[in-house]
Design a protein around this nucleic acid. Sequence first.
RNA 1: GCUCCCAUCGUCUAGCGGUCUAGGACGCUGCCCUCUCAAGGCAGAAACCCGGGUUCGAUUCCCGGUGGGAGCGCCA
Length: 507
Amino acid sequence: MNSSTAPGAVNAPGRLAASGGAFATIAGLLDQLAGQPMTVKTRFAPSPTGYLHIGGARTALFSYLYARRHGGRFVLRIEDTDLERSTPEAVNAILEGMTWLGLDYDEGPFYQTKRFDRYKEVIRQLLEQDKAYYCFCPKERIDKLREEQMARKEKPRYDGHCRDLGRVPQPGEEAVVRFKNPLDGEVVVDDRVKGRVVFQNTELDDLVIARGDGSPTYNFTVVVDDMDMGITHVIRGDDHLNNTPRQMNILRALGVEPPVYAHVPMILDEHGKKLSKRTGAASVTEYRDAGFLPEAVLNYLVRLGWAHGDQEIFSLDEMVALFDIDDINAAASSLNPGKLLWLNQHYIKTSDPRHVARHLSPHLASLGIDPADGPALEQVVEALSERAKTLVEMAQSAVFFYRAPAEYEEKAARKNLTAETAPVLAALREQLAGVGEWTAPVIHDTVHRFAEAQELGLGKVAQPLRVAVSGGSVSPPIDKTLEVLGRDETLARIDRALAWIGAQNGG
RNA sequence: GCUCCCAUCGUCUAGCGGUCUAGGACGCUGCCCUCUCAAGGCAGAAACCCGGGUUCGAUUCCCGGUGGGAGCGCCA
């Protein structure tokens, strides 16, 4: 559990200003000059407008891994400046997802809504230094401008109408604040995954940093936060690549050198289309509810856009030891649900049964089963571990261990619970009743010897037995199944099956 | 429309000028194992988007095309 979920765990603006920003960056620079590695600090900064998306989870993982790999710090920041769309439920969903995945953060969660004073302070500073200005253009003018530019096949952007007005709003007059973007020159983003990307300042316009009501906008809060928090490496989705030059310009206007950027490509659905709620499970909690183990999801995520030679299986520790931003693929990748399933099965069958049992419990509970009513859950997990792709599947297969079959699967019963098999079952029951030690190897021997003595194939013996105890034609190996079930329960279920056969044939 | 990004089997990817008759993994097909279902083992089909350069030599470098994606908000 994270101990830092208190909403009040936000540093006072003053303190942040003193401990972050230019100071941290210069300190890092000095470290580098002195041959010391700069202390890495990464962040994950979701906006709480929905659940923790699979793409977001991967960005969080990459940021987490990079920080851990370099002995740095990992920060969680909630970008909730959009009061309209941000919800407390979404915040909880994100926190819950992070916890489930085991991505623990060293600082935060910080909430941007708690830092408005700080943003206003920086806006005031920019205004005073003539690096920003009030813009009084009515929305209609902006709309018209955009239309005209589009008609001229130009990229719509603000024309700087108020840039040199040098005017301050009168009481009651509304105005936004715009950043004075450089008019010429270029901005170079030395991106760790995309390479060197050059933007002309003429392509950029003077973006709004404060709305009419004085509240700060995204591109501005990000910049202030990354500066104040001393973020050294920004790992985020490549949909932000186009925002980067603007942010770098603001950062420099503030007297700070930008952090290192790494823009990771997006994740597409299995058809190569943009992920949407409709195209299937896209949230981390949905994967959890569908019966996936967190380590499987993590392993799947890390291999999406990143590779280390031919290795497919990575524990969290291995990821930390091997992860590097430079190995991130520049191209977008599509989800492959089948591979996630394969990984999940891998972890189900190779993880400690106690660990699997812990994650299995809730799924059993939702089937109305209390493991206290039957065999030890660990044993059941061991028996089923090689035949379940998800925990939901495993829970379903586990039901018969805790609940005697209320009825028999029709096709299986028609073939295996018949007048012909009844005597076989009855005789086998007596053999089993006499077994000394109720363990799989002994049961195995007993069943095999019985089949030989009766001159029957094993299938003619094991299968009726299986249907009798499990109610269906599929279960773990019969010896293991009986061992876990216990002798009393096994015999009772054979008796019930025998009675059932009698009823079917006797009429 | 403008700017930017991307391009190896169906999918995830290895490859960082010759080692490529392009490797691994998921999935798929076949066989083996087998008391069911799985798991496992073995084998197989399956890719360098197209066109120009650069080079003795391009999957690898450059340019163009095509295709896909992102951004261009008082959203984040």
